[in-house]
């Protein structure tokens, strides 16, 4: 017996397995970052002095990275739309851009880390830097995960398109949901860490 609802939606729930699965995974991710945001708030109200993010971090670099991630989210949703239009080369183009922008984000982030480390601003210096490195580090790991997944669907994983189009679209939709979530987390991280 085959596992049902891999390709088509189940009639009464209106969902494919992978779509429900990815949303549940994202729910757990919300709780993961929730624990860290809770930590941030508690440390901040506990602190006698809390530094102003912009005094320590570079707002232009952070804003640039925000723009990069937003653009990658746009290209991600465009590659999904391209698949729906049966435009496989369009998909490849936009997916390539998504992966490229993600790598650009990581390069900029590494430069930022390097800059901080070389000035002696390591996590052990203060609770602000500690939570900054932990939150952005964990977020960067999520980006790395996204690059691996999206890179797979750009390369070897895209063979599925020729075998089973709907299943491939389902997978890209799930990958997209994950990627938009990573973008969404950054949308909150940027003001919280850089601007407040």
């Amino acid at each position: 017996m085959e596992i049902p609802y891999v390709v088509d939606e189940r009639a009464d729930t209106g969902l494919t397995n992978v779509k429900l699965g990815i949303w549940l995974f994202l729910a757990s991710e919300v709780m993961l970052f929730g624990g860290l945001f809770s930590t941030y708030i508690l440390l901040r109200i506990n602190a006698i002095e809390w530094p102003f993010g912009a005094d320590i971090l570079s707002v232009p670099i952070g804003a640039f990275n925000t723009v990069v991630l937003i653009l990658s989210s746009v290209t991600m949703v465009l590659c999904y739309a391209a698949l729906k239009l049966d435009d496989f080369s369009g998909y490849k183009r936009y997916m390539g851009m998504t992966v490229g922008l993600a790598v650009l984000f990581l390069v900029v982030k590494s430069y930022e880390y390097y800059d901080k480390f070389s000035h002696g601003d390591v996590p052990a210096v203060s609770t602000y830097l500690a939570i900054y490195f932990t939150l952005t580090g964990l977020h960067a790991l999520h980006i790395v995960g996204g690059v691996i997944v999206n890179g797979y669907f750009l390369g070897p994983g895209s063979k599925l398109w020729h075998a089973n189009r709907q299943q491939f679209i389902n997978r890209i939709e799930a990958a997209g949901l994950y990627w938009h979530f990573v973008d969404l987390v950054w949308i909150f991280l940027f003001p919280v860490l850089y601007l407040l």
Binding site: L32, G34, G35
Partner: peptide, 9 residues
């Protein structure tokens, strides 16, 4: 699903 992630954090 919902209680383990805060411990992971």
């Amino acid at each position: 699903l919902l209680a383990f992630p805060p411990l992971e954090a």
